[in-house]
Design a binder for these strands. Sequence first.
DNA 1: TCTTAGCACTCAAGGTATGTGAGTGCTAGA
DNA 2: TCTAGCACTCACATACCTTGAGTGCTAAGA
Lengths: 356, 356
Amino acid sequence: MAAEISERRELVLKLVIQEFIENPLTPVASELLVRKYGMNVSSATIRNEMAALEDLGYLTHWHTSAGRVPTDAGYRYYVENLMDRTPLSATEQRTIRHQFYQVRSELDQWIQLAGAVLARTAQNASVVTQPRAYQVRFKHLELIAIHDTTVLLVLVLHDGTIRQQTFSVESARSQDDLSRVASRINERCHDAVVGKIEDLLHQDRALPLPTLDDLEQQVLDLVVKAMRQLEEQVNSQIHSDGLIEMLNQPEFAQVERVRQVLEMLQGGKGLSPLIPRALASNGVQVVIGGEHSRDEMREYSVVLSRYGITGEVVGVLGVIGPTRMAYPRTISTVRYISTVMSDLLGDLYGGESNRS
Amino acid sequence: MAAEISERRELVLKLVIQEFIENPLTPVASELLVRKYGMNVSSATIRNEMAALEDLGYLTHWHTSAGRVPTDAGYRYYVENLMDRTPLSATEQRTIRHQFYQVRSELDQWIQLAGAVLARTAQNASVVTQPRAYQVRFKHLELIAIHDTTVLLVLVLHDGTIRQQTFSVESARSQDDLSRVASRINERCHDAVVGKIEDLLHQDRALPLPTLDDLEQQVLDLVVKAMRQLEEQVNSQIHSDGLIEMLNQPEFAQVERVRQVLEMLQGGKGLSPLIPRALASNGVQVVIGGEHSRDEMREYSVVLSRYGITGEVVGVLGVIGPTRMAYPRTISTVRYISTVMSDLLGDLYGGESNRS
DNA sequence: TCTTAGCACTCAAGGTATGTGAGTGCTAGA
DNA sequence: TCTAGCACTCACATACCTTGAGTGCTAAGA
């Protein structure tokens, strides 16, 4: 019984995995494959094939008299070679696109919607990061008088990120005054990267008679600080959704697992190492169970894709679930939603969206 | 054995509840009270008292040979009459205030921080709503050219809410053009409620020669729509945190409960009926188990408080947990954080903060 | 009238024994 | 190379028993 892969062996592997994905509580038995999928051989033959697949490392046993269960390697082989790659049905595509169409003008709802749709379609938890520019670039700022010496600064960056913060000025200023300062800064800093603004500030301070007044300097300081801060937290916020969907999966019968997942998602601890990889690559990335660098992720798989406009703004979105997840459907979903999001961003920035 | 409340009976009730709060898995036995709290009577006497408290409806049995467990009425009596009302320790207060001090200028982080601190201090899930003005009032808007005919509208309302959305204009406009339109609108709509803006729009349309140009009309339409939308969703977003903390509570050993909680928190379904009540009342509100109108909340208690500046902006924050929760600590925490948040808002708006 | 010692009674939880059946591995023959 | 047949394994369910914590009640004492 040479441990090589034959066509029939592949079929057995594929069926075992698909069966197990559908019915994750019970290991799949040789007899079942014959009965349910009408194979033309006896269960004994299947058993032999299964034993061979076990030698190859694609299947395992929980105990001697239990059916077979896929290993991480098995899933990997399945995803690479065996899986059907059918896209989402036209109906589903239409429904999804329609939902996005309805919020097309509300930028901040895209993320939320993407998370919700991913979770509901893939029946697992979803993660979505804000689309971020490769470089943090200034777009616009606004100063709003709130009260006495308190001013609200609203900073809009080139990638659509909005930051708001308040600060105190030494003496009360009128709204007109503030607006004038804002528009002067907007003119000077148009599309500038943070370094440019810093230079501006330094040069000006070196002059004997600065052309920037105190308030302008103060505001620019704040802007620089805010932009630097954004630059550092590369992964930005990881928005996640679909915990309930994930909980409905049978593997979460014990609370322990639930806690694990919550900790992984909280602050994206378990996920952040994956983000840069996803940003750097085209197409959908799949990381299965033990392939994760972190131990606490060993029992989960992650399907991620980049979305956005190459060279302009990019983000990451994906699904996280138990290693036994419906890979074909999940992958199609992630791929599709990433193209939808890319298209949306394309419309916004007028660039070519990054369809993979 | 008359079913009346005596001093000793109250003590027994108090001890039973405190003991059960500390050790929620085991019903408290008469013997234990004598041993642990060194009472000067025998366990039989305590048993009699417990039986009386059971007649009064403050305690129950799970089965004949199990210790006593508080009922919802018992908790209620405890919260109203028996509980120690010690505030958070000075050290804790200082730590908390310090954390808020560090993000004092970043308005949008207050909510997040309040949620996190509430959850960590009370060891349960927390909920925080955005502070909202009684009336939605216009503060400021900004138009930013994004690309060709796409314009980003940033709308700042009087209570600090920021809404961003994009829209298309018929013909491309320069940023200067957009800024001019924005500042005209800002002048006209200063501090206006939505009705005012609508009037302005209607009146103008009725004129033979409108003073507002097309773009201005389009923008004002969007503003009105956005403001109306905000007015309707009174409860705004309910931000919640601390799921993990809650999961660490022993009552969440079964996933069923976890799912319940998730569903309650998701979109604040279970909570929204409580918000108006909390907004309308001073001080800390406690709703215990069966007192909830919704069945799915029967096993949970909620501690809520309003925060903000009366007559200006108000929000709600609080904690949700199993009926057996550490009421004294939770209530102190909610009360304290609500005053901290009120103070912060007070600084921002220059009003008197709503300390209760 | 209140308190308490004593005792019978109850019941959840944990342990052990046993049966059941699904499923495998192996062997020998087609 | 496939397959029928059979012994073997092991999780799971069921029933049964034991244990002990804790109560309720009674009757005697303060």
